[in-house]
Amino acid sequence: MNASTGTATVQPGLRPEPHPGPEDASARRRWIRPAAALLALALLGVGVTLFVQGRQLRDTPATSNRALTDSAATTRVAGDVSSALGKVFSYNPRSTAATKESAKQLLAGRALQQYASLFGQVEKQAADQKLTLTTQAVRTGVTRLSDSSAHLLVFLDQVYEREGKTATTAAAQLSVTAEMRGGHWRIVDITSR
């Protein structure tokens, strides 16, 4: 704008911008509404996608494994299973009945059936050979834990003693499945590794 004359000066090659008329404003409003609706739909789609992906991350097997997140529950099942294995795999010639009774309380399912079929032979050997077996869990790892079941890997030291002979120590490794029954962990499957 020229200050002395009060008129607008136009530089060569440049035209002044025209003011938008009512038709131009109406045309802009017509395309702004659909664009805003498309933007809202796109944002909604992104939100739903992120929500679904977040649920998938939370619901992976690793996040549902309490052995990785609940140290108190992991310690409890490891202690209960270690103690149970020590009781059911320890005996002497005079205490096989007590060992058998412990097995009925601490084992269930397939583990109890396996134990019952093998313990009859062990009971006879213990009496004939005056054999004492002492078992202790030396390392117990919980590999999977839920509210009602647990899978463990247990390393045992077993000491065999025959009357009048030197004790022999052996190591054993077991895969154990336990289930929560009546507020107590019961061993339901044992596999030698």
Rank of each mutant, 00 (worst) to 15 (best):
residue 100 K to W: 13
residue 120 G to K: 10
residue 118 L to I: 12
residue 141 G to V: 05
residue 180 M to C: 11
residue 144 R to M: 00
residue 116 A to F: 08
residue 157 D to H: 08
residue 89 F to H: 03
residue 151 H to Q: 04
residue 127 A to I: 06
residue 145 L to K: 02
residue 137 A to H: 01
residue 131 L to V: 09
residue 132 T to G: 07
residue 51 F to Y: 13
residue 142 V to C: 15
residue 103 A to L: 06
residue 162 R to W: 11
residue 172 A to R: 07
residue 138 V to W: 01
residue 65 N to E: 04
residue 142 V to P: 12
residue 74 T to E: 09
residue 85 L to M: 14
residue 99 T to W: 00
residue 118 L to N: 09
residue 112 L to S: 15
residue 173 Q to Y: 04
residue 79 G to C: 15
residue 76 R to C: 10
residue 139 R to P: 00
residue 80 D to E: 09
residue 70 D to K: 01
residue 152 L to R: 05
residue 142 V to L: 11
residue 124 K to L: 11
residue 61 P to T: 01
residue 57 L to D: 03
residue 72 A to I: 06
residue 78 A to K: 07
residue 59 D to F: 08
residue 59 D to W: 10
residue 176 V to H: 00
residue 53 Q to I: 06
residue 128 D to V: 12
residue 96 T to W: 11
residue 63 T to P: 00
residue 96 T to K: 06
residue 79 G to I: 13
residue 98 A to V: 01
residue 154 V to I: 04
residue 156 L to V: 02
residue 154 V to A: 01
residue 96 T to F: 09
residue 71 S to C: 08
residue 158 Q to L: 14
residue 110 R to V: 12
residue 149 S to V: 10
residue 54 G to Y: 13
residue 167 A to N: 06
residue 81 V to L: 08
residue 69 T to H: 00
residue 84 A to Y: 03
residue 127 A to T: 08
residue 81 V to M: 07
residue 135 T to Y: 13
residue 140 T to P: 05
residue 180 M to K: 15
residue 95 S to V: 02
residue 171 A to M: 07
residue 106 L to I: 11
residue 110 R to Q: 09
residue 109 G to I: 01
residue 133 L to S: 10
residue 89 F to T: 01
residue 90 S to F: 03
residue 147 D to K: 04
residue 124 K to P: 10
residue 127 A to L: 06
residue 162 R to F: 05
residue 147 D to R: 03
residue 61 P to A: 03
residue 153 L to C: 02
residue 156 L to R: 01
residue 132 T to N: 10
residue 118 L to K: 03
residue 159 V to A: 13
residue 181 R to I: 10
residue 121 Q to V: 12
residue 61 P to W: 00
residue 113 Q to K: 14
residue 81 V to S: 08
residue 86 G to W: 05
